[in-house]
Amino acid sequence: MKSKLQDASEEFLNYLFDVRGYSETSIVTYEIALRQMLEESHVYEEDGHTILDITPFRFKIVKNHKKTIVKKLSAIHSFVKYLEDQCHMRIKLIGDESIKVPQSLPKPIEETYIDEVLSSANLEEKLLISMLYGLGLRISELSILKLSDVKNGWIQIHGKGNKERELPLLDSLQELITLYIKRRSPKKYLFEKGNAPMNSAQLRYILTKLFKAQGFKVTPHQLRHSFATHLLNNGARIADVSELLGHETMATTQVYTKLGSVKKMQEYMKAHPLADVMHKPKE
């Protein structure tokens, strides 16, 4: 019975990649979670149902970070739903109680820090930062961006789940792309190494190394966070920012409004005439 689920897990991963359009990174994450789960869990038949008891697996990962556990459970739930919907299996999952993880606010990078790093970057590095921060792209979206996706002041983005969105290009970014193409002569993809597109890991390495040289610890996703937060702080509508980011719902984007509210309160406390009076100790 367990071998049957192992075969089904391979079909499920192919389904995620070929039909749902998941990235290779996501597929690897799912593959690891399902392999670990099937190695540790109990699988047996009872009353016409396949029982999948993942309790031993939960004991195995109990010391993992809560977010890691949540991701693994999410992969398992998706797999079970696939078995029910696509394989028409009657399956009962045991030991899948969820864990609540508090949502942490993203940490945007100060604009001055980004400007500082841009001033010391070479052409490729400057374009990499400008694409992530100027357009709010995911690193996975940037890694597969083709030259043919850039045209007439717009850029076509191939996002999660094969969803596409069009983003307007700033004049300065259009000029930077044109200069980069003229000097580097990429053949098919914007960022290439040899005859292949640079993958997410290669682009991430360039970025983190660049910021680290200036004393900053920055990830590509932080630049995406910064793009959203800075737009909202400067008065952009949440619906527009949500569309630019490629979020399915505005609820995903609303976490940035919380961050903006914190910043606004801090600025208010600095700027209000009574701020100094209220913070002075009594004589």
Rank of each mutant, 00 (worst) to 15 (best):
L231I: 12
L244C: 11
Q254E: 15
A239P: 01
P273C: 15
T257W: 00
S226Y: 08
A213E: 14
S261V: 10
K258T: 00
L223F: 12
T208H: 01
S242K: 02
I238M: 01
L274K: 15
K270A: 13
H230D: 06
K263S: 14
E243C: 02
G246D: 04
A213H: 06
V255Y: 00
K212D: 06
S242M: 05
L231A: 08
E248K: 03
L210T: 09
Q214V: 06
Y256Q: 02
A228R: 00
L259E: 04
R237C: 13
E243I: 07
K258M: 00
A251G: 04
S242T: 10
M269K: 14
L207F: 12
F227V: 13
M250A: 09
L259K: 12
T208A: 02
H272I: 07
L207M: 05
L203Y: 07
T219R: 02
Q202T: 11
T249S: 15
A271M: 12
P273K: 15
L207D: 09
L232D: 01
L232P: 03
K209I: 02
L232S: 03
H247A: 07
N234L: 04
P273G: 15
H221I: 06
P220S: 06
G246E: 02
L231K: 03
D240A: 14
A239F: 14
L223I: 13
T252R: 04
A239S: 15
T229Q: 02
E243A: 14
T249N: 11
A236H: 08
M269L: 14
A271Y: 10
G246W: 06
A271T: 10
F211D: 00
I206V: 13
L232I: 09
R224V: 10
A239Y: 11
R237T: 08
H225C: 10
T219M: 02
M265V: 15
H225D: 08
V262M: 11
L274W: 01
D276K: 15
H272T: 12
F227P: 02
E267P: 03
A251V: 10
H230A: 07
I206W: 04
